[in-house]
Design a protein around this nucleic acid. Structure first.
Lengths: 328, 328
DNA sequence: CTGAAAGCGCTTACAG
DNA sequence: CTGAAAGCGCTTACAG
């Protein structure tokens, strides 16, 4: 009992060679219209579907993209996941989803990606040790760090222009009349948190202003607890720049709980423009990350590298936009 | 230039046959400790990794699970995704993520799953036409509907016991003194929305109580708009049973906007117990879905079917728990 | 326990 | 444009 239909079966029914069947399903191969029709008819009748594994075994390539994600709890990332899945699907690629618990991707997950010989890898909110990244390079597997930059400039990354964003936010808050500001950071050493702060502090320095930095962790609970600490310590600034939206929501809830009026007593500005930022209960002013453009840039690079590997590196930065709502 | 190391290379270095190399990496095959050591040493030196595609081509099975998801915007599902990924990883399985836009899974996505000959499929919040489901059965690919039930009892499904949950919620609200209740449904024809309502209405009927049903769509915006309509129509009940949490948050925001006091004027109860339900700004009373148990049940079934296909069907229902907070 | 050999279902030079 | 044949890197009876 043979359960799967193969090219040979189709060939027999269509009255052509197995090679011809193969050619019909292989993009770029030449077949006459006549054989193509015969093959497709036979295939339809038998319910034939080319075996991806045999194909991958020979071509040594797959239509699978590895997508590595950590903070699935931050609503920003499900959005990213959806958009990537849709974008890759358009080109016939499927997504192997890898969830990592660490800031740095685990070797077990790297093994998985290499085992499945993925055509490309997107790492959305984690980093990777340089020698692991090199091993992808050795296999000619293109790699993009999405929303993260490595210290090494040897790898491709796609981010929002966090530096400019930080600057624009500082300028905006200055214009609004704030002088005594505070920055609530995300996880330490993430390039996003660092660069947002850098742009922010740069502009404040130009105006000879200092600001207070509070370390947090990119989660709602972190934002909430950090804000509570600040209020209880009596260190309330006139404006908070919070490194992402989900923390900013925590900050808003803490302020509300303590009866601090926003924006009258304190202004709050977030980062990402997640859907919840626009909810009537929050109406958070924030910086919109252009996810769609970022995804497009990532896919474009991956596609070109998959067509012909160069290993070229670049740090692409897409400009975002300030979204003014009711917390400033 | 040969880029990949294969079993033959390892065999040569280790001084054994290629079959022996294969046996070292094939679970259940017998090899002496001596050859195993020689092979592993050689493999280590060369950086050998068995080719998954060659393996799949022969065994006709993979270590890939197809996970189909629709409502990634509902925070319930990223949680589900994370837990499945972690659970499958424990057994060496990876997740092929498929995002569908339709309530019913698209044929294109089905093709993908069949092409990659996935070892099993989990469909989390979508349905599938019966003949498509049958085609998985024909390929002996086990299938679980997670959080959805098909009308046909021929397929395995794992849900929270929605009927009991609906009943318990009605009883709880009755005990709280509500008599004039309303149900805000999720997308029509989803088994979850239907069963939650069924249990709810059953209990109310026992008390000769009627309730008003408002159709909505399982989204925040839907909950918000529906509640606004109800308020503006002057049809405010004394308690809302909202079919999921994300809608319930929309309902709460609408009530707040209109100055309706919760729970004094209206009680609100949701479903899922997503993380946000516990946020200080909401403190939503809700029904906790035991995701962990549900995932465990799903994985258990899939694992056993992958070990030996039976095609057995069952509708597993796991009991949830009422989580009392401040909206009731 | 081990090796030689067949074969999984394809792609791809090579002739014609 | 088409067919016969080699080969991708494995698993798996079959002997020994």
């Amino acid at each position: 009992m043979k359960s799967t239909i193969n090219a040979k079966d189709v060939a027999k029914l269509a009255g052509v060679s197995q090679s011809s069947v193969s050619r019909v399903y292989f993009e770029g191969a030449k077949v006459s219209e006549k054989t193509r029709r015969k093959v497709l008819a036979a295939a339809e009748e038998l319910g034939y579907r080319p075996n991806e594994f045999a194909r991958s075994l020979i071509t040594n390539r797959t239509k699978i993209i590895g997508l590595v994600m950590k903070g699935v709890q931050n609503p920003f990332y499900p959005q990213v996941l959806t958009q990537f899945t849709a974008a890759f699907k358009k080109y016939g690629y499927s997504v192997l989803f890898v969830h990592t618990n660490n800031d740095e991707i685990e070797t077990e997950d790297v093994e998985t990606l290499l085992n499945y010989n993925v055509a490309g890898v997107v790492i959305t909110d984690a980093t990777m040790s340089l020698n692991v990244a090199e091993s992808f390079r050795a296999h000619h597997i293109p790699l993009v760090f999405f929303n993260r930059k490595l210290s090494s400039s040897d790898f491709y990354s796609v981010c929002c222009n966090n530096l400019n964003a930080g600057r624009a936010i500082a300028e905006y808050l200055l214009m609004q009349g704030s002088a005594n500001m505070a920055y609530i950071s995300g996880n330490e050493n993430t390039s996003t948190s660092l660069e947002r702060e850098k742009g922010f502090s740069e502009v404040l320095a130009l105006h000879n202003l200092e600001y207070k930095k509070h370390a947090s962790d990119y989660t709602y609970g972190g934002g909430y607890a950090t804000a509570l600490d600040i209020i209880e310590a009596g260190e309330l600034p006139s404006a908070f720049f919070v490194a992402n939206d989900i923390m900013a929501l925590g900050v808003l809830d803490a302020l509300q709980k303590k009866g601090v009026a926003v924006p009258e007593q304190v202004k709050v500005i977030g980062f990402d423009n997640i859907e919840m930022a626009s909810w009537p209960g929050y109406e958070l002013t924030t910086w919109e990350q252009p996810i769609e453009k970022m995804v497009k840039e990532t896919v474009k690079y991956l596609l070109s590298e998959m067509a012909g590997y160069t290993g070229s590196a670049q740090s692409v930065e897409v400009e975002g936009t300030l979204i003014k709502r009711k917390t400033t």
